[in-house]
Design a protein around this nucleic acid. Structure first.
Lengths: 326, 326
DNA sequence: CTGAAAGCGCTTACAG
DNA sequence: CTGAAAGCGCTTACAG
């Protein structure tokens, strides 16, 4: 590219930079021809801004909620920010993630998994903004989350409205804050209505846990519940499958099953459970916006955003759900 | 960090560089204390190697096969290579992905989605290695894939062995090469055994497509099949749900349903279909190894790797599958 | 084994 | 609007 200075090229590729429109067009055309693309890594070291944020995600979250990754990916890509994924297989691996984030000079971190306090401090010291996604934020950190307590209220209300009074709960393990919030919501609504909880079990958000819960209740002779609420759809589905395929109960006439997240299979004819959907796109867009603002150094006034979930009705028994019909 | 040269620090952080062990230890300790981490972006521009590879993935692949992302992520992270994810919502978005890859100076690309020839050439010109994952490789490109044709043979053989003779097929759309290979395998094996295909339908890998297939056959009065093979588990599950919940057939005694991929829900009590599992971890590891070699400039002798799938039996009717028992 | 110097490919005041 | 120069934070021959 003869006759053009390095700076001119740089400015041609920088939106809003002061270049003669004609010159810019010329440069862009030449670049096109030569297959030239500015090196973003070099730009990153020069500007000390990578335009990449780290996303710390549990593998389980992606397994059961792949929409989260898509929504965040799209929300950020709309802002010209790319995502470097740190997929955690279990809680142990978090260790070196922080080091990586610091090394890669990421502009920020979306934490959809628990980050130990020590690591948070490390990130804070390096002034890397951290935004929690569906996680309780540490002090001074921003967060975007679904209002799980409200979702609990909603799903309980739904079942109460349909006449159910005796509930069995498949809770999450004690260390799950999301699970705890959901179930607190459920209990609050049930208590208000004077309905009773006749059976409980704790699981780890997996299909098998729902299966085990119902089987265990049957073994214990607990059978007088008319509705099951699980801390997520996966366990709800397991519970329903146990009812139908192990206990051979006729459902949902007798026993209605409900969960949270509105995963795809919750709408299948074989399950068709009631559930509460998280407004994932809204949450992702909010996360991207807040993160972008934080990167720019603007601290938003309201950094703790809660979004209400939306009830997804189970189709009436016998009728195929409209959602599953083509 | 007084008294140490910049180069010394650099070498301390470079495994195998020539530094006095004592000096290295000293530097590392000091770095620890100061919270210093070498800037990988700067390293990337200096060495012209980013240690990041791009992964082009369809959102649908991640939705139905989240294991792929995990396996690749882990395989590469074992080699010290990070992944920058390009999640494609539909075929259109591929456009700017190549530009991004070039800009980010990625060391290579794993393409788990179709990449237009023009873009391939662009990448080739920039000598960015491309490896196809479960995709037919363009000329001169490496690929790692499951042997879908063999998987087709296997699943058909399984059903034949169980005595089935009259088959209904839920194929994939014409543009799906994976679907076509699978079904070619199925047909080859059925033909060899002299079994016949009494019904066919095309779908797009979704639950609803299986549902529609079975419903359509019923409407057309085609009902004399004793086994259904779908091009993936999702459609197989849809088909089975239609049989059970729409036609109220007793399955699997009467009609056995089979698919491909061995997704989690294929093992649920409510479906429990036979399927062929892809050896995803092996494939991911192979992909990482080949890519690493290509980045180093070594072209491997055998660049087209095919891995055989593994049959996953459906549990005998009535008996809970051991895989779903805790 | 070590340090000074040049270079990686960009950006950004600065002076014109 | 434009170019020369300095700088971003690293690495890597090179000479010692």
């Amino acid at each position: 590219m003869v006759g053009v200075s390095e700076s001119a090229v740089s400015r041609a590729f920088t939106p809003g930079a002061s270049v003669a429109p004609k010159k810019r067009a010329e440069i862009l055309r030449a670049a096109q021809e030569l297959g030239y693309q500015p090196n973003i890594m070099a730009r990153a070291v020069a500007t000390r801004r990578s335009n990449v944020v780290g996303l710390i995600l549990f593998n389980e979250t992606n397994r059961h909620h792949p929409e989260v990754l898509l929504a965040l990916s799209q929300a950020f890509s709309g802002l010209g920010v790319r995502i470097m994924l740190f997929l955690l297989d279990d809680d142990e691996q978090i260790g070196d993630v922080t080091d990586h984030i610091l090394s890669y000079q990421l502009d920020g971190v979306i934490a959809a998994a628990a980050v130990p306090a020590a690591h948070l401090q490390q990130l804070e010291r390096a002034s890397v903004p951290v935004l929690f996604y569906n996680r309780p934020a540490g002090l001074g950190f921003a967060s975007v989350a679904c209002d799980h307590h409200a979702s609990g209220l909603v799903i309980a209300r739904h079942l109460l409205d349909k006449g159910h009074r005796r509930f069995a709960l498949v809770r999450a393990k004690e260390d799950s804050l999301v699970g705890a919030e959901r179930m607190r919501g459920v209990e609050d609504e049930l208590a208000r209505a004077g309905a009773c909880i006749v059976a409980e079990h704790r699981g780890d958000f997996a299909y098998d846990d729902g299966l085990v819960a119902v089987t265990a209740w049957a073994d214990q002779g607990v059978g007088d519940y008319d509705a099951i609420i699980a801390a997520n759809d996966m366990m709800a589905i397991g519970a329903k499958d146990a009812l139908v395929h192990r206990l051979a109960k006729s459902v949902p006439d007798q026993i209605e099953v409900a969960g949270f997240d509105a995963i795809e299979s919750s709408r299948w004819l074989s399950h068709n459970i009631a559930s509460v959907e998280q407004p994932i796109e809204q949450m992702a867009n909010a996360a991207a916006l807040i993160m972008a603002a934080q990167i720019k150094g603007e601290r938003l006034p309201d950094e703790q955003l809660r979004f209400p979930g939306k009830l997804q009705h189970a189709a009436p028994a016998g009728e195929p759900s409209p959602r599953t019909l083509p």
